[in-house]
């Protein structure tokens, strides 16, 4: 079954903060079409949306790569943003560097990374200051 892989690629546009979510809603649609369990689809959609929003808010966008197999779904969100100086601090619920403008849009509660952790089976953050951040989200199907 391992050669049965579907790959999706999305550019995450930073021009319009309000339109963020295209990659995660596109992925959600694809997973629904493929007949994945709704609980699995929800885990992917929510964790991916959080990562996508983060790329828009903090890094002027980036890209998303999704790998779908019958065993697991792997989402990689990469950006060329400023990087995360202190991952441990960033992972704390409630910690946020979001601006007021972003908070007015309903974000900036400091729940993005904690939500990603909560809705994935495995999560990896690779970040380098001034270079960018790559977040890998893994959701097991079974």
């Amino acid at each position: 079954m391992s050669d049965n892989i579907i790959r999706l690629h999305y550019d995450i546009d930073a021009d319009d903060f309000s339109s963020a979510g295209l990659a995660s809603s596109g992925t959600k649609r694809m997973l629904n079409q493929l007949g994945f369990n709704p609980a699995i689809v929800k885990k992917v959609a929510i964790s991916m949306y959080e990562a996508e929003i983060n790329a828009v808010i903090h890094a002027d966008g980036g890209c998303a790569d999704v790998e779908i197999t019958p065993e697991k779904i792997v989402v990689v969100i990469s950006d060329k943003g400023p990087g995360i100086p202190d991952i441990e601090q960033a992972m704390q619920a409630g910690w946020s560097t979001a601006t007021n403008e972003i908070r007015e849009q309903g974000f900036g509660a400091g729940m993005g990374l904690p939500n990603m952790k909560r809705y994935t089976d495995d999560m990896k953050i690779e970040t380098e200051l001034g270079v960018g951040t790559k977040v890998t989200l893994i959701i097991n199907v079974n």
């Binding site: 309000s18 339109s19 963020a20 979510g21 995660s24 809603s25 959600k28 709704p38 929800k42 959609a45 929510i46 949306y49 929003i53 849009q105 309903g106 974000f107």
Partner: peptide
Amino acid sequence: NLNTVAVAVLSN
């Protein structure tokens, strides 16, 4: 705003 729609979709 538009994010409300995205969250409504994702949260079902």
